[in-house]
């Protein structure tokens, strides 16, 4: 039998890898990919706990996370395409329009 903490540990490590990529990579596409990693870590947590608690709510929530992740990917990538079209770059540290 695998303790639930193993799954949680794996999810924690995966989440932190996602955070790491999100915070350090310059390429916006890879940053979004890192977000996918974090979402997967969350999904893993949900499914594992759902399994061990014998409650399907967690898995249902995973569905919604996947749906939102898909939507986020679609929108996010569309924004990247627009930004690239305007600025000819997808490097996050070269886009400083937020400063206003």
């Amino acid at each position: 039998m695998i303790p639930v903490n193993w799954y949680l540990t794996l999810a924690a490590v995966l989440f932190c890898i996602g955070v790491y990529g999100f915070l350090t990579r310059r390429n916006v596409v890879i940053m979004l990919l890192s977000v996918e990693l974090m979402l997967n870590a969350v999904n893993l947590n949900l499914v594992a706990i759902s399994h061990y608690m014998q409650d399907l709510s967690g898995q249902i929530l995973t569905f919604f996370v996947i749906a939102v992740a898909a939507a986020e990917a679609a929108i996010g990538l569309a924004i990247i395409v627009t930004v690239f079209r305007n600025r000819r770059t997808v490097l996050g540290d070269q886009i400083t329009e937020l400063r206003g």
Binding site: F22, T24, T96, L98, R99, G100
Partner: peptide, 9 residues
């Protein structure tokens, strides 16, 4: 307020 998304992140 650098405008760099990484800082905000």
């Amino acid at each position: 307020q650098t405008g760099r998304v990484h800082h905000y992140l």
